[in-house]
Write a protein that binds this DNA or RNA. Structure first.
Lengths: 319, 319
DNA sequence: TCGGATCGTCCATAATCTTGAACAAAGTGA
DNA sequence: TCACTTTGTTCAAGATTATGGACGATCCGA
C-alpha cells in the first residue's frame, strides 16, 4: 500500500475532485488519476463511483479514507519520533519572504514549526517584492517563500486569489456593484506597488477585466488597505485568506464574489537544495502540512476589528 | 514514507541482515539496500550503524522499527477493512499442495486465512511429490503451493532447511555425532520417497556431505519418522520448522546443528494468474503475512509429545 | 597467513512511474 | 441548442526505481 497513493486518495476524497486536488497540491491530474487507479487495482475494489464528472466515495472508499488518514498520521508520527530521537533538529533557520502578508501566515506557520521543534532558532527576513529572485544574493538564507502567478521555481504550498471586499456600512451607503464596470462608480482603496498602483485583475470563466478604480486612499501596506476597508472607506482588493476572519465576524463582506484574480502560488524554495538537512526536511514537512486540508492552527493571529469609533485604531492592530 | 521501504526495513531489522532478508523474502539485495538508503535519505538519519558487516540499529532505527510495525499493521487493517466492507471475499478457494507437511503449515495458514475471511470455502488437495508441476492439468485449482530447491515458478513464501534431530534419551545412550562421517555409527530413521530412500544432504559452508545411514526404521510418512525419533529410535532428517515445538519442549535435540541441507523454497503460484480476484489477492496477502517475521499463529497444531510409555501413541498425535 | 565464502554497496540496464499533452465526456451559460 | 470550459482518463516520452551482476570489504576455517 503506497503512501503516496494513499495521500493522493485522501486529497481527492476530501475535495471530491481530482482536478481540484491537483491544483491545490501542485500535482498533475494524470499522476493523481494513475495513483488512484493503482490503489484501486491493489485493493481490487473501486474507491469512487464515477457519476458524470462527480467522484463519489464508495463504501469501501469511505472505509479506506478513515484508515488512510490514520496511516498517514502514523507516518508523520514516525517521522517526528525519529527526528526527535535523533535530536538533531536544531540550529538556525533563515527564511526570506515578501513582507506583505508575513504575519498572516508565515509567522503562524513558523510558530507551528517552533512548537514541534523548539530548538530551532528562526531568523525571518522580509523583503520588498521583486527583490527575492536573485537567489544567489541570499546565500545566507535557507529558504525563500514567495508567491506569484504562473509557474515559478520551488514547491507549491498553497494557492490564493484576490477578491473584492468592503464593510457592510459602505455597502449600505453605496450599494453593491453588480459587475466590474460598476466599480468605476465606487471608491477604491488601492495598494501601491513599487511599480505603480495595483490594478484589480478580475476574471470569471473566460471573462477578464482589469480595473483601476478612482481612489483617494492609497497605501503601500496591505494591512492599512484592509484597515480602511473595515473603516468603511471603500472597496479593497485583497487575498481571501487575508480577510477570512473579518468576513467571519461580519466586518467585511465580499463583493462580486464570483470574480477573482488568477490564482497565485505560494511557493517555497531552498536556496541551497543540496544542503538538505534534517532541519530543512522537518521544516518542509511542517510547511506542507500547514497548508494541507484539515490542518487547524490554534494560536495568536492578527485581524482588524471595528469598535464604536472606527477612526481610532484598536489595540493589537498592525501598523 | 514508502511502505515498501518500511516493510523492507522491518525485515532487515529483524534479521539483522540485508542478505538474509533478501533470501527469506525473495528480494534482491540491491533492492533492499536501495530502499534502505532511500528511507535513510528521506528521514535524513541513519537507521543502521554499519560495523564491519554487522547492521546495528541506531536509536532512530529502533524508534522507527516500532512505528513501522504499527504502520504496516495499519495498512493490513485498512486492507482487511476495505475487503470486508466490499463483502466480496467469498467463493471457493482450491489449493493444491504436496502432502508431506500439509498440516504443519498449510492447514494452519488456511485456518489463519479462514478466520479473516470466513465466507471463503477452501478445497485443499494434497498431491504426491513431483505430480504438481504440470500446471495445465490443474485448471480447476486456484493456486499451488510447493517447495523445492533452487529457482522455480511462483512467489517465494519462505525457505526451509532439513537438519538432524534425535531424542535426548537417544543421545544419552549413543552419544552425539561430531561430524557427518560419525553418522555411519548411528541409527537413522529414514524417509522413503517414490524414487527411493531419502539421502541426508548436508552442507556447511562449501563442504557437502551426502549420507545414507543404516536404518531399521523406514517410513514414507514424515510424521511417523518424527514419531520414531521422539520415541528414541534414532536420528531423523527433518525440516527445522517441523520440529520446532518438539525442540522447544525438549523432546528432540538438534544434532550437528551447523550442518543443514540446501535451502528449499516454499512457493506459491496462481494457476490462472490473469484471473486475479479479490479472493485471490486476499489469500496471497495472508500467505505472505503468515510467513513474515513476527507473525504469531494461535490455534490448534500437531506435535508429538513423549509420555511415560513412549511406545504408546498419545491422544492427538498424527497417524 | 591465506583462500574461499558471504556480506553490503554500487553500476548499467530493464522495468515502472510521473508528467505534459491530447482526448472524450460532462456541465454551464448565452 | 451550441460553444466554450472543465472534468477525468489515456498515451507516449522522460525520469525514477528495481534488479542482476560486479566489486571491495569482512569473516571464518584450515
Amino acid at each position: 500500500m503506497n503512501t503516496d497513493a494513499l495521500a493522493s486518495f485522501v486529497k481527492i476524497a476530501e475535495l471530491r475532485s481530482l482536478s481540484a486536488a491537483g491544483k491545490l497540491y501542485g500535482l498533475p491530474k494524470s499522476t493523481l488519476s494513475l495513483r488512484l487507479k493503482q490503489l484501486e487495482t491493489d485493493l481490487n475494489v473501486p474507491l469512487f463511483e464515477r457519476s458524470g464528472r462527480n467522484l463519489l466515495l464508495t463504501e469501501a472508499g469511505q472505509t479506506l479514507l478513515k484508515h488512510a488518514r490514520q496511516i498517514l498520521q502514523s507516518c508523520d508520527a514516525a517521522r517526528a519520533a525519529v527526528s526527535e530521537v535523533s535530536e538533531d533538529v536544531a540550529g538556525t533557520l533563515r527564511i526570506g519572504a515578501t513582507g506583505e502578508f508575513g504575519t498572516a501566515f508565515y509567522a503562524q506557520m513558523l510558530i507551528a514549526f517552533r512548537r514541534l521543534y523548539p530548538n530551532v532558532e528562526i531568523e525571518l527576513t522580509f523583503f520588498s517584492p521583486n527583490v527575492l529572485y536573485a537567489a544567489e544574493s541570499f546565500d545566507t538564507l535557507d529558504a525563500v517563500i514567495s508567491w506569484d502567478e504562473g509557474d515559478g521555481e520551488g514547491e507549491t504550498l498553497s494557492t490564493a486569489t484576490f477578491a473584492l471586499f468592503a464593510s457592510s456600512s459602505y455597502v449600505e451607503r453605496f450599494g453593491q456593484p453588480q459587475r466590474p464596470a460598476d466599480l468605476a462608480d465606487h471608491q477604491g482603496i488601492v495598494y501601491r506597488t513599487p511599480a505603480g498602483l495595483q490594478h484589480w485583475r478580475l476574471q470569471k470563466g473566460a471573462a477578464q477585466e482589469s480595473v483601476l478604480p478612482r481612489s483617494s486612499l492609497i497605501a503601500n501596506d496591505y494591512w492599512t488597505v484592509k484597515y480602511f476597508a473595515v473603516a468603511g472607506e471603500g472597496i479593497a482588493y485583497l487575498p481571501r485568506f487575508f480577510t477570512a476572519i473579518e468576513c467571519e465576524r461580519g466586518h467585511l463582506v465580499p463583493l462580486l464574489d464570483d470574480w477573482a484574480s488568477a490564482e497565485r502560488r505560494v511557493s517555497i524554495r531552498l536556496t541551497r537544495p543540496h544542503a538538505a538537512s534534517r532541519k530543512m526536511n522537518a521544516f518542509m514537512d511542517v510547511c506542507r502540512r500547514y497548508f494541507s486540508p484539515g490542518f487547524v492552527f490554534q494560536g495568536p493571529r492578527y485581524y482588524v476589528e471595528t469598535i464604536f469609533d472606527p477612526t481610532q485604531p484598536t489595540e493589537g492592530t498592525r501598523t
